[in-house]
């Protein structure tokens, strides 16, 4: 009686109502995200024996295979390299845009700019990727354009069906993801800080380096993670524009699951990919914190 009374009273408090309200959504995420993620982890230690049958005895054989087979290792390394390069390119290209919209655009036009930047993101991903194939192809827009202008005689072949094409296409697809967090961080900077720096004798460039850039760092960190993590698992881009030499780990995961019917090995590759990404992300966060933390004092 006392216990149920206490429970009833708890659900009338701030905390109780909050818990009650968030529970449907949390429960959904628990059932459709946590449970499947745990399942995939568990299955990575099993062995496939039939179409839907598994030998549930614990084994590390999948991990051994995933880590020693040069094919898997190559795919994993390539995925990491592509993700890393795409992240670098998008963030470096995005920063000036975010800076321009935050500092160079009239306040009433800012949301329009941001809106224009985000629109392509909302259009069909599949179509966008396919269009890059059209642009970069042997008889594509770029080659025929360059030939028309007379810059080249033979079509360039190094831009489609390889890693370069994958990187260009992904850098295009993830651009808004990099711009938004940097823009938000720049917007939060109190403009009088910049005036204070100028007032204290710093030049524009030094003000940018000593004030703007450190204060925008959290946005850059967010941009890096928000681009790096999902790109490593991209399936469509390598499939459509990568050719055999541009395939990435997600393509192999799909192959294992849907073609080779080896779910445990597919699961192992998925777990490993996530694990590597998580380790890199955490290491990056720690490094970023250490670089910024020494000077910053109390963090929000």
């Amino acid at each position: 009686m006392a216990a149920s009374d206490r429970i009833r009273r708890f659900f009338r408090t701030e905390q109780g109502i909050g818990m009650l309200l968030v529970s449907p959504t949390a429960l959904y995420a628990l059932l459709l995200l946590a449970v499947p993620l745990i399942a995939i982890f568990v299955i990575s230690f099993w062995t496939q024996t039939g179409v839907r049958d598994f030998d549930t005895a614990f084994t590390l054989a999948n991990y051994k295979e995933a880590l020693t087979d040069p094919l898997y290792r190559q795919l994993m390394l390539r995925s990491l390299m592509v993700s890393g390069l795409v992240t670098l390119i998008t963030v470096v290209l995005a920063f000036p845009i975010a800076y321009f919209v935050s500092f160079g655009v009239k306040p009433e036009h800012k949301s329009l700019w941001i809106f224009l930047i985000t629109i392509p993101f909302w259009t069909s991903y599949l179509i966008r990727v396919f269009l890059w194939k059209v642009i970069l192809g042997y008889n594509g827009v770029l080659n025929s354009g360059l030939k028309l202008v007379g810059l080249i005689d033979e079509p360039l072949s190094f831009i489609l069906y390889n890693v370069n094409a994958v990187i260009i296409t992904l850098a295009h697809a993830y651009a808004p993801f990099a711009i938004l967090p940097i823009f938000v961080a720049l917007e939060k900077i109190d403009r009088s800080l910049l005036e204070a720096s100028r007032d204290l004798g710093e030049s524009r460039t030094m003000t940018f380096l000593r004030v703007t850039l450190p204060l925008a760092a959290p946005g850059v960190v967010a941009a890096v993670l928000i681009v790096f993590i999902p790109t490593i698992g991209d399936y469509v881009t390598p499939r459509l524009v990568g050719g055999p030499g541009g395939l990435m780990i997600a393509n192999m995961i799909q192959t294992q699951f849907l073609r080779l019917n080896n779910a445990p090995l597919g699961a192992t590759l998925a777990v490993l990919a996530m694990l590597i990404v998580a380790v890199i992300a955490v290491a990056f966060l720690l490094l970023g914190n250490r670089a910024a933390g020494g000077k910053k004092g109390a963090r929000k």
Binding site: G18, L21, V22, T25, L37, I40, D234, I253
Partner: peptide, 27 residues
């Protein structure tokens, strides 16, 4: 409202925002 574990619970709910879709799909 603020409730115990808010950050963790919300972080988990927002996770699909960065999780590669192929992971969601295969799991």
């Amino acid at each position: 409202y603020s409730f115990p574990g808010q950050k963790g619970i919300m972080g988990f709910i927002m996770l699909p925002l960065v999780l590669p879709e192929i992971i969601v799909a295969v799991s």
